[in-house]
């Protein structure tokens, strides 16, 4: 479903990761590991299509559901309206199932601004379900979730995988789910690599 080959990823003109290759099949989740600042977010942004890699190839399905650090919620809209909006944009399913999966049904008609940080995060994750996309790209999905809600997230993710979906996640904490993991430490680009076109002009 997702195929990444010989990818190089840069941030701020500096190549972070070099020659990364992996693939994710339907029913599979891949966890990207590595210290802060190693380039997990940049790699995920490349997969989501927000950033162009400096070299290499990414093969993805036409639409990808992407969840970043920011949830992208509108505080003035209700929880239901927030999900409904994304469901309409993606042409995905109605929000009811998504609300139930993350036990948000009691807040459905409250403004999203009233939710706690953990609840907002759950709403952000529930957005994935209404996109109807098979590939999820998740950047630190469990941030600000307590133990119970992390378990809830695992349950939803498992169901997604069993339904033939796939996911790429970035996290620096332990991930208690039977998933493939890829340690990015071995792909750290060497010091002298720079994505700058001025390299050739250096005397």
């Amino acid at each position: 479903m997702l195929q990444v080959s010989n990818l190089s990823v840069a941030r701020g003109g500096k190549i972070l990761l070099h020659d990364v290759s992996f693939s994710v099949e339907p029913g599979q989740a891949l966890v990207l590991r590595g210290a802060n600042g190693i380039g997990k977010t940049s790699l995920l942004r490349c997969i989501a299509g927000l950033q162009t890699p400096t070299s290499g190839k990414i093969l993805v399905p036409e639409t990808v559901a992407y969840a970043a650090h920011a949830n992208g919620l509108k505080g003035q809209l209700s929880v239901f309206e927030n999900l409904k909006f994304w469901a309409d944009i993606y042409g995905g399913p109605r929000p009811d199932v998504a609300l139930n999966s993350y036990s948000l049904e009691n807040f459905a008609y409250q403004p999203a601004a009233n939710l706690s940080a953990g609840q907002q995060r759950r709403l952000g994750l529930a957005r994935m379900l209404v996109t109807g996309c098979r590939l999820w790209v998740l950047d630190e999905p469990t941030v600000s979730l307590d133990v119970q809600n992390v378990a809830l997230f695992y349950k939803v993710l498992k169901a997604h995988l069993q339904g033939g979906g796939a996911a790429v996640l970035a996290t620096h904490i332990d991930f208690q789910l039977s998933a493939e993991s890829l340690d990015l430490t071995s792909y750290i680009a060497s010091l002298n690599m720079s994505s700058s076109a001025f390299e050739e002009a250096l005397e």
Binding site: A48, G49, L50, E62, T63, V64, A65, Y66, A67, A68, H69, A70, N71, G72, L73, K74, W86, I89, Y90, G91, R127, T131
Partner: peptide, 13 residues
């Protein structure tokens, strides 16, 4: 600021 532009950019729109 709230990240929804990123999400819109990755959407089919």
């Amino acid at each position: 600021e709230d990240g929804s532009l990123d999400l819109l950019a990755t959407s089919p729109l």
